[in-house]
Computed example of a mutant assay.
Amino acid sequence: MDLMECLGALSTLSDQGTVSRTESNLKMIPASFYIPKNKPLKPLGDDAHFICEPEQTIGVADGVGSWSKKGIDAGIYARELMSNAADSVRDEMKKYGVVIPKRVLSKAFLNTKAEGSSTACIITLQGEFLHCANVGDSKFVLIRENKIVFRSPVQQTKFNCPYQLGKMSNTPSVAEEFACKVQEGDVIIAGTDGLFDNVDEKELETLVFMGLQEDIKPELLAKKIAMYAHAQAKDPRACTPFQRESIRAGFQRFGGKYDDITVVVALIMSTSIAPWIPVWETTPAEFCGETLVDSPGPRFYFTHPLVMLSLYDLPFSLESPDLVSQSRCPLNDYIN
């Protein structure tokens, strides 16, 4: 996709006309997978996200972990922000019939009372265009015919210091707005820096290509990408984007960056195709609120803004050689 297909900044926050109302038979089919860091005192991690499929809108956020030095769990801020964003999305659609990401972010920010700060990226499909508002280094890429044809820009003051929403940080006025045209067959991969700091673009293209070759559903593709990113994050010999950026910034760094990992996969499909039903719509809720019951071993979790669902117990430990071998793990290990 030529960069000319991407629209410039959308400067008017309250003007619904800035968001395309073009009629289209395209639909975004999203799913997600989340792997929090293994911290017993913070089992939910710092990441959060939401999926509003009827409103064709998704969002991801990453609470800034440095707040822990002040005894504050920034993950609570991120989760409240995303929950409020989901509420705002539904309200926007009911009132105006269209979702404006920056306005959603502004309303969510004003309604979030927790202490802390967070990055945020809100993405909506309107007609044939994706519209996005982004603050910080959570982002998305658009893959077409096995190639990344668009990547949302990140915002940071310096290396590893992203813009962030919070009472003592930035406001949504700094959010960068942009749009890009999509077509049937496109794949959107959105996530926090735990994904993009650990997985190269070529690796991400390969993971998506192999997933599409196997015709797997979005939730399984999200899981495979997240697992690969987790393996990279734990591998001291992995060559990762974060390692390279660290060296450019003058820091001695080796291997991956251990972090919470959120992956949202969205397929752009024709509405003439029967819709896929997300796992969380048919799975009973096992966890609600902030408290998790003790688990006998590591688990992966799939999150909804108000409910956390346990998909299944893994047949192996996250620390075991079954997932991360002593040598660098081949990409195929996470696809088959």
Rank of each mutant, 00 (worst) to 15 (best):
G255T: 01
G255L: 01
G256A: 01
K257C: 06
D259H: 02
D260T: 00
I261H: 02
I261K: 02
I261N: 01
T262L: 05
V263F: 00
V263W: 02
V264I: 13
V264S: 01
V264M: 07
V265P: 06
V265S: 09
V265F: 04
A266C: 03
A266N: 02
L267R: 03
L267C: 05
L267S: 07
I268M: 06
I268Y: 02
I268V: 03
S270M: 03
S270L: 02
S270G: 06
S270C: 04
S270E: 09
T271F: 10
T271L: 15
T271P: 06
S272R: 08
S272L: 08
I273P: 07
I273H: 10
P275N: 15
P275D: 15
P275Q: 06
P275C: 12
W276E: 10
W276G: 05
W276F: 12
I277L: 12
P278Y: 05
V279K: 10
V279A: 10
V279G: 11
W280L: 08
W280R: 08
W280S: 15
E281Y: 07
E281G: 14
E281A: 14
T282R: 14
T283L: 07
P284S: 01
P284A: 02
E286N: 06
E286Q: 10
E286S: 12
E286V: 01
E286M: 08
F287Y: 13
F287N: 13
C288Q: 15
C288K: 06
G289L: 04
E290G: 06
T291E: 15
L292Q: 02
L292A: 04
D294R: 12
D294Y: 12
S295C: 13
G297Q: 09
G297T: 14
G297A: 15
G297H: 06
G297D: 09
G297Y: 05
P298V: 01
R299I: 03
R299L: 07
R299W: 13
F300Q: 05
F300H: 09
F300C: 14
Y301E: 08
Y301I: 03
F302L: 05
F302K: 06
F302A: 07
T303D: 08
H304E: 12
P305D: 07
P305C: 05
P305S: 11
L306S: 04
L306N: 13
L306M: 11
L306Y: 15
L306Q: 12
M308I: 14
M308D: 12
L309G: 11
L309T: 11
S310Y: 11
L311M: 11
L311V: 00
D313E: 03
D313G: 00
L314M: 06
L314C: 04
L314H: 02
P315G: 00
F316A: 00
F316D: 04
S317F: 00
L318T: 05
S320T: 07
S320D: 09
S320L: 01
P321W: 08
P321V: 04
D322L: 14
D322E: 15
D322Y: 15
S325E: 13
S325L: 12
Q326F: 07
Q326L: 09
Q326D: 12
S327N: 10
S327F: 09
R328L: 13
C329D: 08
C329A: 14
C329I: 15
C329S: 13
P330L: 00
P330V: 14
L331C: 09
N332S: 08
D333M: 03
I335D: 03
I335Y: 03
I335V: 08
